[in-house]
Computed example of a mutant assay.
Amino acid sequence: MSIKDTKKLTPTDLLFYIISILIIIIIAYPLWFVIIASFSNPVDITNGEVWFLPKKWDFGGYRELFKQKQIWTSYLNTIIYTLVGTFIALAVNIPAGYAMSRKDLVGRKWINIFYLIPMFVSGGLIPTYFIVKGFGLLDSFWVMVLPFSVSTYNIIVAKTFFRSSLPESLWDAAQIDGCGTIRYFFQFALPLSKSVLAVIGLWTAVGLWNSWFNALIYLNKETLQPLQLLLRRILISNLSLLGAATGSMAQELRRLSDMMKYAAIVISTLPIMCLYPFLQKYFNKGVMIGAIKE
């Protein structure tokens, strides 16, 4: 902003900027505090001596976490689950959303009902478990990326996007040139859908990255378990040891346990936080366009 532009600021604009800065601080500071707390002694945090930087840098929480031999395997598992699962989700939900956006789809009304019913009525955990078991997916890589790849909500967002963003005249012009439905989808619809691809991809990636419950239910092999499940097991194990310890040992275990909690939050959320800024413009555009009422 130049000096000339600054002179044009009205009291309303100034108030708007102040409120915006306060909102940014309110949102950003807790994230920053978690990061600095992961490098701080829990005693300093409890005494209120940590505000913007650690009083004394302490890497004990990270050292204890990275002593776990399986953490790198679990980290790699989570990355692979996220990449493969996001690709499969896009490959399933985007074509389904496009097909449902077409007015000439045969049986479109009944297909809509078919997709909407599971959105409100679930089969339950036990029937789902037996179905997964029946397909032989227990304790396999694919159980984390295949059974739950279809999302009715994402399909509806994709359908609304295609309906509102792709003019019918484009389809008519493509037909005149001899373009079929499949070719039109890959050659015209997909290149014009970067925003909705980014939105659904980001939603799916965040869900897969943070997923631990499905791994808890369907995976017994430690070599296949994701990062979030490993961190959960480590923290629960620390609580068990803490309950059995006494005296100075209990104080040291409590200190390490608290530091490991903050460190676990940082290492489990940092990759997604780094990815989000690159997709933010597509994310905002896709959410707004996909939310247009039909």
Score class of each variant (00 low, 15 high):
K194L: 05
I267S: 02
Y115H: 13
A28W: 04
Y129R: 09
S151W: 01
Y129L: 08
T181K: 10
A245C: 15
A158K: 01
A28G: 02
V34I: 13
G201E: 00
D5W: 06
K221L: 14
T128D: 13
G97D: 00
K261F: 14
W142G: 09
L197R: 04
S195L: 05
P127A: 08
S211R: 03
L9W: 10
K133M: 11
T181S: 08
I35Q: 01
D139E: 13
I289H: 06
T223S: 15
K4M: 11
L125M: 15
L230N: 02
L9C: 02
G107W: 13
W142I: 07
D13W: 13
K285Q: 12
S101R: 08
A245V: 07
K159T: 07
F141L: 06
L208Y: 02
P226A: 03
R255H: 09
F130A: 12
W209S: 03
R102E: 09
L166G: 10
Y282S: 11
F148M: 11
V34A: 11
F16K: 12
L90R: 01
F148S: 05
R183K: 13
I21E: 03
D58I: 09
D139S: 07
D5I: 05
L83E: 05
T82C: 11
Q68I: 12
I36G: 00
A99M: 15
K281L: 13
N77Y: 07
T78F: 00
M119L: 09
E222H: 08
V43I: 14
I155D: 01
D58M: 00
K67E: 11
Y62C: 06
K281C: 03
Y282N: 11
W32D: 01
A173D: 15
F135I: 02
L242Y: 13
K261G: 04
F120P: 04
W72M: 13
M1H: 04
Y62E: 12
S151Y: 01
K109Q: 15
A244V: 09
L227E: 05
S164F: 07
Y17I: 10
I217S: 03
A158S: 06
Y153E: 01
F141M: 07
I3H: 05
M144C: 10
G247Q: 03
I35A: 06
A244W: 10
V34F: 00
K261M: 13
E49C: 04
T269W: 02
L15T: 10
M119H: 03
I156R: 00
W72D: 14
A28N: 03
N47C: 11
I80A: 05
V143K: 12
D177L: 05
I88N: 06
N93C: 09
L241C: 10
L253H: 09
S257C: 10
D44I: 02
K293T: 07
G286T: 00
